[in-house]
Design a binder for these strands. Structure first.
Lengths: 175, 175, 175, 175
DNA sequence: TATGAATGAGACTTCATTCAT
DNA sequence: CATGAATGAAGTCTCATTCAT
């Protein structure tokens, strides 16, 4: 990956996350990346191609983040790590754009991409089963839905305190 | 309100909900409403004005929907009615557009408009307090966040079964 | 002439003078005149008709203003009165719009309407002839041109002192 | 400056001079320049930017034309050259558009831009002072105003004979 | 006479995309 | 690989004008 291609990806990620996909013009991306507009098309074919590239890169990162949870066998640890991950949204400044983009794109394009979450859901289901919960699958689903709700608030509501709520949610599961 | 003005509002609501605000062109709205494009601007000033009008109309509807919950004094009933409302998203076909629009707009414009939810949150907080919950405010917040998460899934994930989850969540509160 | 028709004429005169013919929308005129937009078309057919009406009214006023000069027989008086008229541009607040409009329209539409000035030019020519000037017609033309130049400056240059210059010009003719 | 950018400037100059700024649509300019409409905005940002570019170019030309007069030290020559310049309006076909535009814009935008004329006025004032005129500054002002008056007539009145009048005016100053 | 809803043409502008260099 | 000039379609919005009431 050339230097300039990388710069385009970074600029686009930031702008798409900030302003959305369609509202971000290729010319703006080019300017932010200090690159000619034409280069975007040389590397990614078209604007959709650029988005795909960003999303694909994102999925790789997500896999890595999820791996630690999915590979965990101790059920309580699975749940703890899941909540830990949720907290991470907030703190890791450079990942903020990435996660925000995921949600913005979801709503703009109306695709959820549930397959990405499947390994996580299975890991959680399994953990709840081991812990003797009655409806482990629904418990897992609920947890993931909570995450979506938290993200909605965190990205859209100014001064929203995530940590407080994550802790509260966590404590509901006596571990 | 003239007949055509009403038609514009309906067409715009539907299109904004389906495709988002910016991606929906005024010419498309005009065509769907069987109206000249200029009329949109005569009635609403500009595209933003049209959106505002739709949102304002929506807030009125939301107030009505919330009223029933907010005015309820029996705590268990408050919570029951809240879950009932959540289910309604799904079934009332004509309101689907309205709620979907709320979320699409939130993400597109990045404003949450938490004030709209305040009465609901207060009512829930109060209900949990009466029921002797330790942290009633956080309980209320969590419930609202669940709703955001459910909406995210319901509108974005094909074939997502809301009812099942709403029931599950409801049962967590032994009432 | 009905009350409302008169109001339209006045509003249009003011707006055309301030902003020009084309840039002034009929809706703006209607608003300023507190009248429905349609009424403009009922009374004047179209926007051009409105302009014509204003110009025609203007010509009537001009005739009246010019009459005093044209009917004067004493040559020195003719010239004095001409300069007096020139000064009037400035002072008579309600006529300011009228004269300004004349020039704005001239430049916007590129028609000079020299016939309007003919009686004035003849009167001046005659006066200069009586006073023994060698080229009375050119003297008259020059005077009128001076007036155009003064108008240009007066209407376009902020803080331009007309009186000073009118006096100076006047004194060039030892009377 | 690319070939097409130059073509846009030329087409715009001509059309603005002929029909005025606002009445000339960008699409008309593009057509006349055999260029896509978008290119206008790529090069000049917006329609105002195009006008500015034309005016700026014009000011450069004006400076050059004025230089010869301003640098002249012999007072009679200053005045002679001033009248010579006045005559040039008429004859130089390609400059006609430029000067006409200056006046059209002045009236359309209602700005005189007196600073542009300052060097000329100072040079004339100085010349009249050297020639022993009583009120040299007013003499200079009058001359410039005459020029405005001449321009008004020349550009707006069909079949107006400038040369005759310029000569007449010139002869008033016994040189 | 008077209103104001409604229209449709055309204005300025943005933007993804192509292409010669 | 990289640039930046150039395009054309589409977008938002303005405005003179018509027409039913």
């Amino acid at each position: 990956m050339t230097d300039k291609k990388e710069k385009i990806l970074q600029a686009a990620l930031k702008l798409f996350a900030e302003e959305g996909f369609r509202p971000t013009s290729t010319s703006k991306i080019a300017k932010k990346a200090c690159v000619s507009e034409g280069l975007i098309f040389r590397h990614f074919g078209n604007k959709d191609g650029l988005l795909e590239a960003i999303i694909k890169e994102g999925e790789e990162q997500a896999k890595i983040l999820f791996a630690d949870i999915v590979l965990e066998t101790e059920p309580k640890e699975v749940i703890r790590k899941f909540f830990e991950l949720t907290s991470k949204f907030v703190n890791t400044k450079d990942r903020e754009d990435f996660w925000k983009l995921q949600y913005k794109i979801k709503w703009e394009m109306e695709i959820y991409g549930e397959h990405k979450m499947e390994p996580l859901q299975l890991a959680l289901t399994n953990a709840f089963k081991k812990l003797g919960y009655e409806k482990p699958e629904l418990e897992a689903k609920l947890l993931l839905i909570n995450m979506d709700g938290l993200a909605t608030r965190f990205y859209l509501q100014k001064n929203f305190d995530v940590t407080e709520l994550v802790e509260f949610m966590h404590n509901k599961y006596e571990l």
